[in-house]
Design a protein around this nucleic acid. Structure first.
Lengths: 140, 140
DNA sequence: TGATGAAATGTTATGTCATAACGTTTGAGG
DNA sequence: CCTCAAACGTTATGACATAACATTTCATCA
């Protein structure tokens, strides 16, 4: 144990390898793409990657993009305290360059929570993903 | 041609079969579940279902739930003119009973559009899905 | 009427994403 | 040291989706 008030937990070897692959990537990666990149590091089966991904998502270090069946390293743009990190975030996914922008729109989340409250729906997770073209890739 | 100002287009046989299966279902169905239900009607291959689904989604009669890899018949709760039907809608998916509630929160959409505008992101589609427990299934 | 072209269809094969089930290894704490 | 939970390794299988190619349907129009 590396002592640890409540920050990022120690990663196991496989978790570190998978997180490294995602951190170094320009965009989202599928589990099988990650596996291919890590063959030389000893990973051999999809399950090794999926198990690491499950944990990394649980730790909040990685996000799963539902509309892509792929994963990205978390990159929320600024101040988050160690204890309680982020809540719901949204993603803008460029279909041209593959780039993903993570953002938090508190008003959006509040509105959705409001709807849920009035309907008695108890949300455990929320998916918000925009698909389209980023500024660089959009036609002039 | 059944003349047609700009309402729902005529469906082909396969499209009608698939739409019928989704309309009759209590919750979302996967393409393969639909296929199984339509074997007796002559459907034999996944592609027949996927092609029909593509069209139905294009027509706005069916929605794809990204976080479930499944499909539901559209059921937006009220007034929509024939010409321009709905824009972005959101879904609340109960993980206990499988029920799906479709809803439109215009403020949420506006906020996301606002973010996109300021970032220069040109969204072509938007996914909003809440996962959790519906009122009936939530613990007392 | 009958040529024609776009859309839909039928079929086989394959690609991609994800987990079940089993046994083994690792390592912190008693 | 023992023990137990967590992580790991491996094989097999399940679930979701599309490529490629041949054929049929049917509204349009010369």
């Amino acid at each position: 144990m590396t002592h640890d008030t409540e920050s990022t937990p120690d990663l196991t070897r496989n978790q570190a390898l998978v997180f490294g692959a995602l951190s170094g990537a320009e965009g989202p990666l599928s589990a099988y793409t990650i596996l291919d990149q890590l063959r030389d590091d000893g990973l051999r089966a999809p399950l090794q990657v999926y198990r690491a991904l499950d944990k990394l998502v649980e730790f909040g270090l990685v996000h799963r993009l539902e509309s892509l069946n792929a994963f990205v390293a978390c990159n929320h743009p600024a101040g988050d305290a160690p204890g309680e990190s982020h809540g719901t975030v949204a993603f803008a996914i460029c279909e041209e360059c593959g780039g993903v922008t993570e953002f938090a729109e508190q008003d959006v989340v509040k509105r959705l929570q409001g709807w849920a409250r009035t309907e008695g729906f108890h949300a455990t997770s929320t998916v918000i993903e925009l698909r389209g073209l980023c500024e660089s890739c959009a036609p002039a």
